[in-house]
Nucleic acid binder design. Structure first.
Lengths: 252, 252
DNA sequence: TAGATTGTTAATCGATTAACAATC
DNA sequence: TAGATTGTTAATCGATTAACAATC
């Protein structure tokens, strides 16, 4: 994995969040990371006309085992019906509520190189309810460029704009050398969630959540497995193939 | 997280790999995912002139705690010197060996939409030793286009080309609807590692490793944390900030 | 020798999983 | 009632962490 931690890491004592009990469910990190996958599967099932789905059916669609799915959903409360399954619409609503997807969160993108350009136009964000509302770059030659209906602004405007436009999530797609400075500006502007595509560790206050996506690291992990498999097939007991899917997802 | 599993998942009995003991280290999945991060930190340190680094120093640069780093490195064998630290060059070599980065692995990219375009030109691949050697798309209007010195070929050529050019890793950046068919072709062509950017679960044989990167899922996970934090600050005991970094990385 | 730092141990924690009682 | 399927339990597994003995 290549995710940076939140909450339970040093600097965040257990139970520090609040003395009072809150209605907000305290979900295991692993569960949180799977909820979006369940949501996607549910949207597919709903679109295909299903009213109800069993843990077996939904878990297959999401690529996990059914016990894990039921355990995950049990953390949200009890929304299934024994002997029947889960109501698709109800479960979608519940997961969207927990993930906070019923609220619009303004996203800004910093760094409009190759990758930033693609992210600015990435359908998958819009189709799943996220809208990038502001673009920034340090390169004067990029400032003023129109991308997806937005004008690229100079990074010096980032701080003020992030406050004024109430940016909740900042996406960093700059080179590694610039990322920490951008993160600092975002944090100062009150942004508390950062998605970092730059290949570097960011240092942020404990209340700020950072997720990191490092595309090269993904390839390196696959390279390890290629190496491992090659070392096995080179041996007498080496195998070529067996059966069903074995996949790992980024995040954690 | 949103990684698909490998190895230890159903269909892969423990110890099935081989009856014989192999020299290849059997690393915990969590360790494997961190090795690339250590490697990046080591390259930075080496570039800055360091010959030697302590577990404290390296772990800080990689954003993990030092006990975890030492534990991870101990799986590779003993390459540190008590009282001194780790030899930077030696450790780089060792990690690169384990990750199989001393061998060139041909990578192909399928799907040249917005994201695929960016991936084709992504500096981070080349700078860390991966070279995309072939591009494919189903859209006739894209076929023939030159990107980064490569000509986009029609997806019907994928199978034959993947065999002939000995492709080891396939990157899927198609829409979700096309991804499984592409994966099937890759698998038939003998590709055993897939990096999937399409928002869907792929079904592949047990010997094929799939890692999934879902950019929207990352935002949804951040959205959860935004929602959680908002529900806390709305309470009497709500806090605004505390201290040092809390980050999570995509991947296992 | 004294100081520093690794490699390992053992305790703890969180996540996974199979099994099944509860219940529709 | 009989069949189906959830929600929960408890066992297991893997990962994290602090502490420290080994050793440079």
């Amino acid at each position: 994995m290549s995710q940076q931690r939140h909450g339970s890491t040093p600097g965040n004592a257990p139970g520090e969040r609040t003395g009072a009990v809150t209605a907000f469910p305290d979900l295991p990190e692993a569960t949180i990371a799977r909820l979006p996958e369940y949501l996607r599967a549910l949207h597919n099932l709903g679109g295909a006309g299903a009213d109800t789905v069993s843990s077996e059916g939904l878990s297959a669609a999401a690529g996990v085992n059914s016990a894990k799915l039921r355990k995950d959903l049990s953390h949200l409360g009890s929304y299934g019906t024994r002997g029947v399954g889960y109501d698709v619409t109800l479960l979608i609503e519940q997961i969207e509520y927990v993930l906070g997807l019923d609220q619009r969160r303004a996203v800004c993108l910093v760094g409009l190189g190759n990758l930033g350009h693609a992210l600015a136009g990435y359908d998958g964000f819009a189709s799943r309810g996220f809208k990038i509302v502001a673009l920034f770059d340090a390169d004067a030659s990029k400032v003023g460029e129109e991308i997806q209906g937005l004008t690229v602004r100079h990074i010096e405007e980032l701080g003020r704009a992030a406050v004024e436009e109430n940016i909740a999530i900042g996406v960093i797609a700059t080179p590694a050398g610039a990322a920490q400075a951008v993160a600092d500006v975002l944090v100062d502007a009150g942004v508390t969630s950062i998605l970092n595509f730059a290949p570097c560790v960011l240092s942020v206050p404990a209340n700020v959540d950072v997720r990191k996506v490092d595309l090269a690291i993904e390839l390196q992990i696959l390279s390890f497995h290629e190496h491992r498999k090659a070392s096995l097939t080179a041996l007498p007991g080496g195998r070529s193939a067996t059966a069903a899917g074995n996949q790992e997802a980024v995040g954690s």
